[in-house]
Design a protein around this nucleic acid. Sequence first.
DNA 1: GGAAAAAATGGGAACGTTCCCATTTTTTGT
DNA 2: ACAAAAAATGGGAACGTTCCCATTTTTTCC
Lengths: 339, 339
Amino acid sequence: MATLKDVAERAEVSVSTVSRVINKEPLVKPGTREKVEAAIEELGYLPNRVAQRLRSINYRKKLIGLVLPDIQNPFYVDVVRGVEEAAYRQNFSVMIGNFDQTEEKEKIFLEILQSESIDGLIVAPARGRDENIRKVIENGYPVVCIDRGLVDLDVDVVKVNNEEGARNAIEFLIGLGHRRIAHITGHPSIATTRERVAGYDMAMRAHGLDIDPELVRNSDSSYQSGAELMQELIDLDEPPTAVFTANNLLTLGALKTIHENELHIPEDISIVGFDDMYWSSSLNPPLTAVRQSGYDIGGLATELLVKKIAHPEASTSSVVLDTELIVRHSCKPPRGSVA
Amino acid sequence: MATLKDVAERAEVSVSTVSRVINKEPLVKPGTREKVEAAIEELGYLPNRVAQRLRSINYRKKLIGLVLPDIQNPFYVDVVRGVEEAAYRQNFSVMIGNFDQTEEKEKIFLEILQSESIDGLIVAPARGRDENIRKVIENGYPVVCIDRGLVDLDVDVVKVNNEEGARNAIEFLIGLGHRRIAHITGHPSIATTRERVAGYDMAMRAHGLDIDPELVRNSDSSYQSGAELMQELIDLDEPPTAVFTANNLLTLGALKTIHENELHIPEDISIVGFDDMYWSSSLNPPLTAVRQSGYDIGGLATELLVKKIAHPEASTSSVVLDTELIVRHSCKPPRGSVA
DNA sequence: GGAAAAAATGGGAACGTTCCCATTTTTTGT
DNA sequence: ACAAAAAATGGGAACGTTCCCATTTTTTCC
């Protein structure tokens, strides 16, 4: 592959000048610039990003890391797209790591990213307290969290208003006449889970409804546990007439169980899921869901990170986006109600 | 961050020796190795992968690229997981690029990867002919294709037996008594599409059924076009009693339209999809699908690539995996049939 | 016990860039 | 037209490693 030196020789200028052209620095005479650009074209020169990164000063490496707990979750796929798009606009590359919810993999991946000399990091922490991420921050890397923040750490966050999203969903169900509303939650160690539970509680209490602890069940946020917990709810002496699932994997798991039990949605049971998917209309019936835009979250997080890379001293900020309740056809008043 | 030099000073050995320890080379006295490892531990040293990559000889950079047309497609997400897992086992990192089906993005991404000094590349070509990929191969990079190969280029491929997969699906439908079986295909420029169509044709002909060209419709493999083409099929004077969709996005799109038209699966129409998803059981009714393991494909492609990186002179090989028809509940004999 | 062979270690160039400073060229103002 | 200022270019060290070769130390074997 052609190097800077090759280009310099061809264009009959110094290596420094070619470097300046590559980096679009202003102090190059137009004529020189053209000569150099011609040489680059002729040689098919591509800058070696590895050498660039090795030599460049901190905030100019043009590489950010993205660390996600579960790439099988469509929400995070949207985040990936949002981050890639925004990063691309700012001429940054993205290195993606998926740690499948395991702490060990997360640690390894964070180390790799630091070894790769990233400028900064976007991460969706699996737990509220995360020693691995704390270390990265202590090492001086700019970090932006998505989806949820970190306990004890003052860090930039881009997230949605989970409490409100959950509250809207529950109030919608209450409005339809439901009283026994179940909530399959995520892992209680995650802030997101607690906020969504808080929204559930708030809505229930605001309408004078008791919260039956049997109807609120913690999970590990997986497809599997969504299916299992749904079965437990169905097997209850007095099963719920509606269920609110705290993320899309749980929703899909719950749907599986509902279908297996040959219950009909929405006649036998209503369901609202947190997280919408582009194919939610393909479900039967089309799913009513609380939409949070992973794409927007990823995009905003990237912009925030890029700013922070340029101005590391700036104070931390947090962005809270609104959710939207997308009403489709998976809910109706409970049997025998007079809504 | 601590460097090799820091470790060397602390352990009172030369930089070369530390490098040898890092790279697990055998020619180090056990005692020395321990001293060095202690120093590494104490300083929290992490090798700088950028410097390593810059200096290392060709096949030792320990980085591979993965270029995919559409990360929103769950099949490719499985591929990502398979590649990451296998790469991790071999101590390789993976740089992922998603080009959203656009040629321009693909080009940019392939250039970035070359700039990043990758050892080799796994790619799912969007088209059968791809100048961008051809260039990468000409530049001497080992390349393994997944899902489909490239016209005119002798390249390693890991794929499934598409023809057989499609044939099995169609024969299953014929066995149930269907005669008017539609096929929503992918883009005709893609080999995968042609192979699946060939399987469809073969099955139909083998059972003496005419192929009605109205029932075979080309798409761009998107969710949107799956929905649109399904509507066209439903609007036919003599609509099909069963439909075979050529990938999971098309399947989801078709399902949306079927539900919108208030048709019932499988009473009004049967559907078999190419590509299974882990949540196919969550669809209502659970989807009958031709399963191809993206995870296995990704894993095998990675192993093949790693071998090729070590022995670039080896002749190209291609791996063809079998598909599996997962029968769930989205198919039954057509109305009025005496199956 | 000593020479030869093998093992272990060290020194320094090189990878392809950027960055800093020095030098040369051009522009500006009078 | 000339000095001063500004713009443009060049030279070479440095980034943190690996790799090659040289040197030193240890082992082997008669």
